[in-house]
Each structure stands twice: as structure tokens, then as C-alpha cells.
């Protein structure tokens, strides 16, 4: 039988949010004339892309029972670095090296010192945001031409943004479902969720290294989202990533990935991010106040997640 709630599935509850997305899409197509136009749909994809990319990274961390609150700061930090006065071939590798460094610190402290991920990534969020505001107190500067060209062009009518999305999803798909790494992530997460933190290690998995790499990957995905955003806004902005961490967690949770770890899916996360984007896009078209949009986002998150049941109580 088709399992709408994903109760017995390793993939979590992803069919429900897909239903929500389809319903919103259908309502918008019939309700507004502008929604179902090619232009608006490509716009939607472009608007959703930073969140899709960030949420995929966030999901890797959530799968092993973690949480990364520093992604928003990493995004702002990335745009600030890209707007520095240096050649593109220095800046672009630099943002990924720096992001990997931040992710490494997060993962290292979480795995070696056993500090709770919320505490660690909250601290790095503050630190990275502070550094970003020193580098660029207000928005300004220009990002390299290459970056702008890479996000604003289109190929045979398909905007580059969509191609970015496909590339990122493909990369994450290989990582999760075609590489040993993904299997290990699910195995370790499943153990953590059921309180058997040693289980995966007893099977000979390098659990610390795997978890650490999830944080590094999460930061790098955030940096990629930052590069994308920098190309869109053409300058560095210390506030562009503000609260993105909450949106990314919302998207991940909406997609049926459980915050306790071990259960979740890539397609669920992508669906979750698109539900949020659809909401924003649709309510803009329908002239709904942005404040109501915020409230509706909260209600949907509560409703969808409230329907899931799990054993673990607490965080």
C-alpha cells in the first residue's frame, strides 16, 4: 500500500509535502493568470535555488542527528568574500576552502568534544557573522564577472539556475545513493536516532569522520548557495543569509527528514524547499501580505511535522 505518512519508510514522509506542493500549484494555476507562465515558473526555480542548495547540505547534517545553524552566516560571508578586490580565480576557490574550514570546525567540535551541534553551530554563526560584518559592514562591492554570468544566462530557454539545481541534485544523489558515504550516513543516523550511538562504529564504520564530513559538505553547499546569490545580487551583502538557517531547517523538516536522524530523503528535501518557494511565489502573485506569508509558512510547517510520529522526545 502507498504509505502517505512514510511511517515505515527510511525515506520519511515525502509524499505528503509533494501533495501539498501539487495542491498549491494547482490552486495557483487556476486562481491566477500569471502563475502557469513559463517566465514565472523559471523565476520560481531561480528564486528557490539558494534554498534548495542550502537545504540539501542541511539535510546531510540532519541525517546524522545534527543541525547547522551557521549556514546563513556562511552564505553572507561567501558573498562578502566574493565582493573583495581580487581576481576570480583566487576568490572562487577561496570561498570553498573557507567554508570547508568552518564546516571542519563545526564537525570537529561536535565529534571530538561531543558538544551539542546547536551550541557549536550557534557559536560559529556568531563568529562568522561578526567577521562578515567587519569585511563588509553594509552591502556593496562587485562580484567577479564570471559569477554573474554563471547565474544570469540561459541555455535553449532554460535558465542557468535550473542547470545549477540539476547539477547540485545530481551531486547529492550520487553522494547519498550511489556512494558508500550515503549508506554510512543513514546507518550512523539510524543508530543515533534509536539511542544506539555506538552501533555503526561496532560495524566498523568510521562514524566520527563521516559525521565531520557531513558538516564540511553542509558548509560547502551553503557556500555554493552564497556564490549563486552573489551572482544574483551582484554585490556582497552581510545580511543576505540572515535567517536562511531557519528556512533550510524548515525545508528539510517539511520534506519528511526527521531531526532525530536516520530518516530522510533527497527528493523530500527538494520538495520541501519548493513548497516554501511556491508559497512565497504564489502569495506574492495573489498579493498576500508578506507577513501573512510568514504565518502561513509556520502553520504548514507545524501541520506537516505534527503529522509525523516518532519515538524520541525532545529536540
Amino acid at each position: 500500500m502507498f504509505d502517505l505518512m512514510g511511517r515505515n519508510s527510511r525515506q520519511g514522509m515525502w509524499a505528503m509535502p509533494l501533495g501539498v506542493a501539487v495542491v498549491i500549484g494547482a490552486v495557483l494555476s487556476f486562481g491566477t493568470a500569471q502563475f502557469a507562465t513559463a517566465e514565472n515558473l523559471w523565476n520560481l526555480v531561480t528564486q528557490a535555488m539558494p534554498l534548495v542548495i542550502t537545504a540539501i547540505g542541511q539535510m546531510l547534517v540532519v541525517l546524522v542527528g545534527g543541525l547547522d545553524l551557521s549556514v546563513g552566516s556562511v552564505i553572507s560571508f561567501t558573498t562578502a568574500i566574493l565582493a573583495l578586490d581580487a581576481p576570480a580565480w583566487v576568490l572562487i576557490p577561496a570561498v570553498f576552502v573557507l567554508a570547508a574550514g568552518i564546516g571542519f570546525i563545526n564537525g570537529f567540535v561536535v565529534t571530538r568534544f561531543r558538544v551539542h551541534p546547536i551550541i557549536v553551530t550557534l557559536s560559529t554563526q556568531y563568529i562568522v557573522l561578526g567577521v562578515t560584518r567587519i569585511l563588509r559592514p553594509t552591502s556593496g562591492g562587485t562580484v567577479p564577472e564570471v559569477v554573474i554570468a554563471a547565474v544570469s544566462g540561459s541555455l535553449w530557454g532554460v535558465p542557468f539556475a535550473a542547470l545549477w539545481g540539476l547539477a547540485v541534485i545530481a551531486l547529492a544523489w550520487v553522494l547519498l545513493y550511489r556512494a558508500r558515504y550515503g549508506l554510512h550516513l543513514f546507518a550512523i543516523g539510524g543508530g543515533i536516532a534509536s539511542g544506539q550511538t555506538e552501533a555503526a562504529r561496532n560495524f566498523g564504520l568510521k562514524d566520527r569522520r563521516t559525521v565531520l564530513l557531513a558538516y564540511v559538505a553542509c558548509s560547502c553547499f551553503a557556500a555554493l548557495a552564497g556564490v549563486f546569490l552573489a551572482g544574483r545580487i551582484v554585490s556582497g551583502d552581510p545580511n543576505v543569509g540572515l535567517l536562511v538557517e531557519l528556512d533550510s531547517i524548515t525545508a528539510v523538516a517539511l520534506g519528511g527528514t526527521q531531526l532525530a536522524g536516520g530518516i530522510g530523503s533527497l527528493h523530500g528535501t527538494v520538495i520541501g524547499a519548493f513548497v516554501l518557494a511556491l508559497l512565497a511565489n504564489g502569495m506574492n502573485l495573489a498579493n498576500v501580505s508578506p507577513f501573512v506569508q510568514t504565518a502561513v509558512k509556520g502553520v504548514i510547517l507545524m501541520a506537516v511535522v505534527g503529522l509525523q510520529s516518532r519515538k524520541k522526545m525532545g529536540l
Binding site: L259, L301, V305
Partner: peptide
């Protein structure tokens, strides 16, 4: 048994949205 992070975050989002509206 919903994640406390999600529940309390969602409550906050709803309240903030409602007040700002």
C-alpha cells in the same frame, strides 16, 4: 513527539507573522 526545535520555531514564526500582519 514532534521535534522541539520545529514546534517552538513554528510557533514563533506564526506569532511573528500574525503580529506583523
Amino acid at each position: 513527539r514532534v521535534s522541539a526545535v520545529i514546534v517552538t520555531l513554528a510557533v514563533s514564526i506564526i506569532l511573528v507573522g500574525a503580529v506583523q500582519y
